[in-house]
């Protein structure tokens, strides 16, 4: 289990990294935390000829809040997100979610940029980006591109990034005061990729959702911002309303089969999550019992 031979360069600046990417194109791979790339290389599932290590680009690391926008550098490690007071205050959903990403050793090396660029449909962070309405900032030879999270994830391990582009940061609107969130995933063991998960951001007023964004993951080839959430906004939620939303959600899902679950099981679990999420955000235990009975 040894990687095929490859050439290696440690980028000295973002500009340098972009030059290397332009020069080597599709034959090159960016190395960030290495927690997805290196296992794949060791298993010889991928064999890039050239590795561009961006690990030393301090300019890409860190969390900044300015004018209602939270900017997270691509090299910010999962462990940094977990510890960051800015994230805890302005994007608590993300803080909750990161605790479910892998284990401490992996979180110490893995980065948000790597996770988003890798675009595993079972990953927590991409779904959070949808729920939080993030913008992904990519830099290429022709300058910067801003890509809405909803446009960024296009398939299994596929994103809107071009081979010569570097993901440099994500921007999130600061979560408004009094907004609430819900994060839960079903994973066989703590730290495993989820069988199905849900990252939700909401605004509740007078017992109703004024706003509800549901970011499901592991329910298809990419994270899903559920349109069916619309059925729950600005209405009094009853079991019937929830059931209707649940069936609309079902129509939106296109789950895959893998070792852990059949598509039918994923659909079922997604609906359980929806019910638990709504019941929890509205503090209405009656809603959950209704669905599960």
């Amino acid at each position: 289990m040894k990687a095929s031979a490859f050439a290696y360069a440690r980028a000295t600046s973002v500009t340098n990294a972009l030059e290397l990417l332009t020069a080597h194109g599709e034959r090159a791979k960016v190395l960030s935390g290495g927690q997805s790339l290196l296992p794949a290389m060791n298993l010889r599932l991928v064999a890039p000829e050239f590795i561009i290590d961006i690990g030393e680009l301090a300019e890409l690391r860190g969390v900044v809040v300015r004018e209602g926008v939270l900017t997270i550098g691509a090299l910010t490690r999962h462990a940094d997100l977990l510890k960051s007071p800015e994230i805890a205050t302005h994007a608590p959903l993300l803080a909750d979610a990161v605790a479910h990403v892998a284990h401490p050793a992996i979180r110490t090396r893995g980065t948000i940029g790597g996770s988003l660029a890798h675009a595993d449909p079972a990953s927590e962070l991409p779904a959070c980006m949808l729920a939080l309405g993030a913008t992904i900032i990519a830099r290429g030879p022709n300058g910067e591109r801003r890509i809405a999270a909803s446009e960024f994830f296009v398939g299994i391990y596929e994103t809107a990034l071009k081979p010569e582009e570097l993901l440099v940061a994500v921007e999130l609107p600061v979560s408004p005061k009094n907004s609430t969130h819900f994060f839960h995933e079903f994973a066989r063991r703590h730290g495993d990729y989820a069988i199905v998960g849900l990252a939700a951001q909401a605004f509740v007023r007078d017992g109703r959702f004024a706003n509800l964004r549901l970011g499901f993951f592991a329910v298809g080839d990419r994270p899903l911002l559920a349109k069916s959430a619309g059925k729950l906004v600005d209405v009094v939620i009853t079991s019937a309303v929830l059931a209707e939303a649940s069936s609309a959600l079902n129509d939106e899902l296109d789950p895959l089969e893998d070792q852990q679950a059949t598509p039918a099981m994923r659909r079922h679990l997604a609906k359980v999550l929806l019910a638990r999420c709504v019941s929890s955000l509205l503090d209405r235990p009656d809603l959950y019992a209704g669905v599960s009975a």
Partner: peptide, 9 residues
Amino acid sequence: IPLTPQVIL
């Protein structure tokens, strides 16, 4: 066994 969620559901 194993009693996986899939088996139980």
